[in-house]
């Protein structure tokens, strides 16, 4: 009777442990499998065209065949970076303002309600945001400055998509400011503004920054909300009213009928997208590890 219990810690349940270990290995292998298959599908294009063609080709005519085919991904990369960058520029101050409302400037009861509403907004599927942008937002922009389906519409829809992430994570960062620091500020008789400027923002800076970086990763990978409103014309936009096509939209629009090299180049677009998102995520991770982060 004593034997099983005394050996409990030295001999964990072997079959159970191995089952769990096996299933964990399956979960861990998925990302490798994804990279493997996207690389495999992209390989013909990388091998036959070389990576420079995607930067140097002046246009995007992947289905032309033979020597006429052009595979320039640069306009799509510009579309992705500009739409995400614009959305982050809008969402970051809005998220901070919303965090300040929920933590210090708004009445506590409204702060909770505000958070719940943000969670509702976060639960709205991106295709629904895209649909709303298509039928409500783009006609409004068209009245102001045609054609309506534009970089601006894409930026606004992306902002709606990433605002909940930015706002909720910013609020968390502000809440993590130690109570002792706030009490010390209060004991010094600092005003609310001085506390904010001298204590809250410096201490929460790392958390606020990583909220913005995580949100930009989300914006870079977003498909539906931009696909439906940004117009999808392949060009480097000269103004916010010009239509653009992002890397994600390019894949969604063309994978259905793409063949051979055209299909392979779409997978190259996927690789580029993964690369950009990976850089952003690595930035966020290094920020969280850095000692300066409060």
């Amino acid at each position: 009777m004593l034997k099983p219990s005394s050996s409990f810690h030295r001999h964990p349940d072997r079959p159970l442990l191995w089952t769990l270990r096996l299933l964990s290995a399956v979960a861990a292998l998925i990302v490798a499998l994804i990279l493997l298959f996207v690389l495999r599908e992209a390989w013909p294009a990388l091998h036959q065209l070389g990576p420079l063609r995607f930067l140097h080709d002046p246009g995007w005519h992947p289905a032309a065949g033979g020597a006429d085919a052009q595979y320039g991904l640069l306009p799509m990369l510009a579309g992705t970076l500009l739409s995400s960058g614009g959305a982050v520029l809008l969402a970051a101050p809005l998220g901070l303002g919303s965090a300040l409302f929920a933590t210090s400037y708004g009445p506590p009861r409204l702060g909770g309600l505000h958070r719940q509403l943000l969670q509702v907004l976060g639960g709205i599927p991106s295709v629904v945001v895209g649909f709303w942008g298509l039928v409500v937002l783009t006609p409004l922009i068209r009245q102001w400055h045609p054609p309506g389906q534009s970089l601006l519409a894409g930026i606004l829809c992306l902002t709606v998509m990433i605002l909940p992430t930015t706002a909720l994570l910013s609020e968390q960062a502000v809440r993590e400011v130690p109570a002792e620091s706030l009490q010390a500020a209060a004991a010094l008789g600092l005003s609310r503004r001085a506390t904010l400027e001298g204590v809250v923002l410096p201490v929460a800076r790392g958390g606020l920054l990583s909220a913005v970086i995580l949100a930009s990763g989300r914006a870079l990978g977003e498909t539906m909300a931009v696909l439906m409103v940004a117009g999808n014309v392949i060009q480097v936009p000269a103004a916010v009213f010009d239509p653009v096509r992002t890397l994600t939209a390019n894949i969604a629009l063309e994978l259905g009928y793409a063949l051979d090299l055209h299909r392979a180049v779409l997978f190259v677009g996927g690789l580029v997208l993964m690369g950009v998102v990976a850089v952003v995520m690595a930035l966020a991770a290094s920020l969280q590890r850095s000692p300066g982060h409060g």
Binding site: V31, T223, V277
Partner: peptide, 18 residues
């Protein structure tokens, strides 16, 4: 590996699934 997977854009899951 899971953290990396969490950062993969959904359209890339579409590419992979296809």
């Amino acid at each position: 590996s899971l953290d990396t997977l969490a950062g993969v854009p959904s359209i890339v899951f579409g590419l992979f699934g296809n």
